[in-house]
Amino acid sequence: MKMNLERLRKGTLKLLILEALNDKPMHAYEIIKSIEKKFHGIYKPSPGSLYPVLKQLIESGMITVEEKDDKKIYIITDKGKEAFNKMKTEMKNVFTKNNQYRKLVNQLFEIGLIIYNFRDKLSEEDYEKINNIINECKNEIEDLLNKLK
C-alpha cells in the first residue's frame, strides 16, 4: 500500500504556512521565502503547490485574506493558531516519543543536505545514479514494511 505523498506534502505545507503566518501576516511570496529560509534553500514550495493549500486554509477558516495595494495579505485566525499549536504538539510528540523514528528522519534529512552541498558538482549521470540508489532503498523499505501487514 503506497502512501499518498501528495496528501502528506499538503499536510506538511499546511503546517509550514500556518507557522509562517503565526509570526506575521504575509503575501504569498513572503510565505514561500519564509519556508525556503527555514529549510536553508533546500525546499521552496512552488506557487502551484502553495495556492491550493492557501485556498483550503481560507475555506476552513484558519486564515483570512485582505487586499492591500492590489496584493493579497494572508492572516492567521484564532482557529488557525489553535490548529497550528495542535499540529506542532502532535509533531513534537512524534519526534520525542519515538527515538528510532527521529533517527530515521534525521538520516533522511542528512542525505538531503549531502546532496544539496554537492549539487553544483554533480553531473546528470551522478544525479541519475543517486536517484537509482534512493529508489532501490525506497523499494526495499516499502517491501519490508509491507511484510508487517
Rank of each mutant, 00 (worst) to 15 (best):
I63G: 08
R102P: 10
K97L: 11
Q100I: 11
T77Y: 05
K79Q: 02
T89D: 05
K72C: 09
K44G: 10
G48N: 15
E67T: 10
P47R: 06
G61Q: 05
I58L: 14
M87R: 12
T77C: 02
E67I: 09
P52L: 05
V105N: 00
V53I: 08
K97E: 14
M91N: 05
E67P: 01
K92N: 12
E67M: 11
F95P: 01
M91R: 06
K88D: 00
M62R: 14
E90M: 09
K79V: 01
M87F: 11
Q56H: 07
Q100H: 09
E67K: 12
K103R: 07
L104C: 07
E66F: 03
K68D: 05
K68F: 07
I75G: 08
V94H: 03
I42H: 08
K55S: 12
I76W: 00
Y51A: 08
Y101M: 12
P52N: 04
Y43G: 01
L50V: 02
N85R: 10
M87V: 04
D78T: 11
F39E: 02
T89G: 02
K72S: 15
K72Q: 15
N85Q: 13
N85S: 12
K71Y: 13
K92V: 06
Y51M: 09
K55C: 07
R102G: 09
Y74D: 00
G48C: 05
M62H: 12
I42C: 10
I73G: 07
T96G: 05
N93G: 05
P47W: 04
Y51V: 02
I73T: 02
Y51E: 02
I75T: 13
K44D: 06
Y74I: 02
V65Q: 12
F84R: 04
V105C: 09
E82H: 13
D69T: 09
E90Y: 06
K55I: 11
M87W: 06
G41K: 07
I75D: 08
M62F: 14
T77F: 05
D78F: 09
M91L: 13
K88Y: 04
K55Y: 12
K68G: 01
S46F: 02
E90V: 00
I42K: 14
N85A: 08
K37A: 15
E82P: 09
I58Q: 12
G41Q: 03
V94C: 11
D78G: 07
E59Y: 04
E36R: 15
I42Q: 13
L50D: 03
V105L: 11
L104A: 05
A83L: 13
K86V: 15
Y43E: 03
V65D: 04
S49N: 10
N93A: 03
M87T: 06
E59I: 05
P45C: 04
I76L: 04
Y101V: 14
M87A: 15
D70Q: 12
K86C: 11
D70L: 13
